[in-house]
Simulated scan of single mutants.
Amino acid sequence: MVVLDKFEMPNIDLDGIVKHLKETGKYTHQLWLNDESLAFIARGRTYRSEFHINPSYEIQFSLIGDLDLHYRTPEGETKIAHVPQGSVLYQEPFVPHSPRFAPDAFQFIIERARKPGEIDRFHWFCPKCDNFLHEETYVVDDYRKDPVGRAYDNYYTSLEFRTCKKCGTVAPGRD
Rank of each mutant, 00 (worst) to 15 (best):
D146C: 00
F101C: 09
I109V: 15
Q107S: 12
P99R: 11
N34Y: 02
S158L: 01
Q85G: 14
R114K: 05
G65F: 08
F94D: 13
G149A: 01
L4P: 02
P99T: 00
G117F: 08
L14D: 12
P147I: 01
G65P: 11
G65C: 00
D146A: 00
R144Y: 07
S56F: 06
K6R: 15
I12A: 03
S49V: 08
I53D: 10
L159N: 10
L133E: 10
A151K: 01
D130A: 09
R121Q: 10
P96D: 09
D15H: 12
E92V: 05
P10T: 05
E58Y: 06
I59E: 15
D13W: 06
T163E: 08
F161C: 05
G149T: 00
K115N: 11
A102D: 14
F94Y: 15
H20C: 03
V139N: 09
G65V: 01
L133I: 10
E111T: 04
Y71L: 15
T157M: 02
P10E: 13
R45E: 13
A113L: 02
L4F: 13
D66M: 07
E8S: 14
F125I: 10
K145M: 00
R45K: 15
M9V: 13
G16I: 11
R121D: 07
I64H: 12
E160P: 03
Y27K: 04
Q85N: 05
L133T: 13
I53N: 07
T46N: 09
I109R: 01
W124Q: 04
Y47T: 05
H82E: 10
P116A: 08
G117R: 05
V18F: 10
T28C: 03
D68E: 14
Y27V: 02
S56C: 07
V170M: 03
T78C: 10
L38A: 06
H123T: 06
Y143M: 15
R121P: 00
